[in-house]
């Protein structure tokens, strides 16, 4: 018998250390994925342990700052005061205030985010119509299939040498690399969206007197939106991952460029800050896209 009187606190459930009332009444838990609670406490422990470990390594002078920067330079036992340098925290502040190579940190970040957004936008603008064409028309499908199947598996970074030769080193070249990364994801998502339309919806629309254009506009397009949005989410992630490498083409501004140049000056702290920023923004993008998805496409998975 489950004990109904002894309820776990809401905090315990949130932390994932106690099962909620429903899970508590399940007798089979191992193998039931929905009975595995969030374990949020352990997530918190992980983060705290990592930060404490970093702090200990700093105070104890365990890791050479060349390989991993101290959390705070003033805590590190420098054997040579000449070498004393700020830690990650101070460096972050100075990057925000003074910037890196005369460019404020937020501008590096915005440059990178802008590149990703442009790449994804152009990828969507070209990929969605092509994906629709491939899903709806056999000539388009025949024409594009070999091209798509051939180019798709090539990592965009492998095209860097050609891209420099053809498009140079400016924004166009970097955006083009990201565009390529997004293009095929969007194309395939749009094609899958078209393929996923239930034939009874199309039949219903025609029986209600809709024309071909109206079926496309009012049935096939909205029906494909969830898949298209998943494509957008994926290409955001992939482009963000490709970005750093794309910025190495000719590093000037952007988080990837900043890291590349910092590497040449062995500024490991800047590199680490870059890594943390890339992780955090990637995470933020994913969260934002999920919120947008719930807001824009509430019918997803409910057809």
């Amino acid at each position: 018998m489950a004990d109904h009187r002894n309820q776990p606190s809401a905090l315990a459930i949130w932390l994932g250390i106690a099962d909620n009332t429903f899970t508590r009444q399940k007798t089979v838990k191992f193998g039931d994925a929905s009975a595995v609670n969030s374990g949020r406490l352990w997530s918190i422990v992980t983060v705290v342990v990592l930060i404490v470990a970093w702090w200990i390594a700093t105070v104890g002078g365990i890791l050479d700052p060349i390989y991993w920067p101290p959390l705070d330079g003033s805590l590190y036992p420098w054997d040579n005061p000449n070498r004393a340098r700020p830690g990650v925290v101070d460096r972050f502040v100075s990057l925000m205030v003074e910037g890196y190579r005369n460019v404020p940190l937020w501008e590096h970040i915005w440059t990178s985010v802008k590149r990703v957004l442009l790449g994804v936008c152009f990828g969507a603008l070209v990929g969605i119509p092509l994906g629709f064409a491939m899903g709806l028309n056999s000539v388009a499908r025949g024409l594009l299939d070999p091209v798509v199947e051939f180019i798709r598996p090539i990592p965009p970074l492998a095209l860097i040498p050609l891209v420099i030769l053809w498009l140079g080193i400016d924004e166009v070249a970097k955006t083009f690399l990201l565009f390529l990364a997004a293009l095929f994801i969007m194309l395939i998502a749009a094609r899958a969206g078209v393929n996923s339309v239930r034939i009874s919806k199309v039949h219903a629309a025609y029986s209600l007197g809709a024309s071909r254009t109206q079926v496309l506009r009012h049935v096939i397009l909205p029906n494909a939106l969830p898949e298209i949005f998943t494509g957008l989410r994926t290409s955001m992630g992939v482009c963000w991952g490709t970005l750093v490498a794309a910025e190495l083409v000719a590093a000037d501004q952007g988080v990837g460029s900043m890291m590349m140049i910092a590497k040449n000056f062995l500024q490991t702290d800047v590199v680490v800050i870059g890594i943390i920023i890339i992780g955090a923004i990637g995470f933020a993008i994913e969260m934002l896209m999920r919120v947008l998805e719930g807001w824009l496409i509430p019918w997803k998975g409910k057809g």
Binding site: Y206, V219, P222, I297
Partner: peptide
């Protein structure tokens, strides 16, 4: 010769436009 609004259809389910 083809679908026309003079002949309406009611399907089992899933033919509504959920958007």
């Amino acid at each position: 010769t083809g679908p026309h609004k003079e002949r309406g259809m009611v399907f089992q389910q899933g033919a509504l436009f959920e958007w």
